[in-house]
């Protein structure tokens, strides 16, 4: 048996020991909301062993892969743009993987029954929803840092300054994708209680994408010409294009979050 001593900081905050006057929140108390939000983020990102282990393995594995590739590129003096392509793939892997691990943790809690403890705590359903999404987004951003730094260092060694400019835009794009993916995947994980429904959703979505891809060939839709593709690529890489895409992704994520939050707070059961 070991006595738990959370330290002076908590004792100061815990009013009867610290001597500070205790305070019960009034509706809309922003400090209470902030503290609850922080606690939910910390719960998933810091305290949850399942998340920590899976997350660290993902980041370490992907960073190691990128490190090996970067070393090969430096040794072989290969074109830096390919390093950027590989790095983007790795960033996407960690950026999309991190929210998936949080989603896994949520589904596991639902299966174990501990998710209902979260709903019994003094926090609003909306705060729980937002805190979990923010946890996923923060996990995504933190996961991107090591592979991004590795790629940056590789490009610096290769002295590819023009590719480094592209790297900033690619990094931003991955960040936006991660935000969109975190919003969508965590909304599904929070709002859907049955793993069977999630499996059906994934299968349904994959089928839809396949059908759309096939229908292009079957319906004989004219593909983009090389000139049109170049025009599109130039627009996407321009400041205006990036701003437009950023705005679309942010608005789309916002819509998903708004709808998700409404669905989550109106759920009939959190068991």
């Amino acid at each position: 048996m070991r006595l738990y001593d959370p330290g002076a900081e908590e004792r100061q905050e815990g009013s009867p020991c610290g001597g500070r006057e205790s305070k019960i929140s009034s509706p809309g108390d922003s400090n209470v909301e902030r503290a609850a939000l922080k606690a939910v983020i910390k719960k998933y990102v810091l305290y949850d062993h399942f998340f920590r282990r899976a997350y660290l393995v993902l980041v370490a594995q992907m960073s190691a892969i990128l490190l090996v590739f970067t070393a090969l590129f430096i040794v072989k003096k290969s074109p830096a743009v390919y390093l950027l392509l590989i790095s983007t793939g790795v960033w996407l892997g960690v950026g999309l993987g991190a929210p998936l691990i949080v989603a896994g943790a949520i589904q596991r809690e639902k299966a174990e029954g501990s998710f209902r403890t979260l709903r019994a705590l003094p926090l609003r359903a909306e705060t729980l929803f937002l805190g979990t999404i923010l946890g996923g987004v923060i996990a995504s951003i933190l996961a991107l840092v090591p592979p991004y730094l590795i790629a940056t260092m590789g490009l610096m060694v290769l002295r590819s300054w023009d590719v480094m400019l592209l790297q900033i835009r690619a990094g931003w794009a991955v960040l936006l994708m991660s935000f969109l993916f975190a919003s969508a995947s965590l909304t599904v994980a929070l709002c859907v209680n049955s793993p069977a429904v999630i499996v059906n959703m994934i299968v349904g979505f994959s089928t839809l994408v396949t059908v759309l891809a096939l229908s292009q060939t079957l319906l004989d839709v004219r593909p983009f010409s090389e000139e049109e593709l170049l025009h599109l690529a130039r627009f996407l890489l321009s400041l205006e294009g990036q701003a437009l895409i950023s705005a679309i992704v942010v608005v789309l994520s916002g819509v998903i979050l708004y709808m998700g939050s409404r669905i989550f707070s109106r759920q009939k059961s959190y068991v």
């Binding site: 004792r11 815990g14 009013s15 020991c17 719960k43």
Partner: peptide, 27 residues
């Protein structure tokens, strides 16, 4: 149904952050 993959101390810290009147001495 507490959080099985969390340390008991972390569970307590987590709970404490929701209650302004949490008393660590009593805990």
């Amino acid at each position: 149904p507490l959080f099985r993959r969390m340390r008991a101390s972390d569970v307590l810290k987590f709970f404490a952050s929701f209650y302004p009147r949490w008393d660590w001495r009593l805990a």
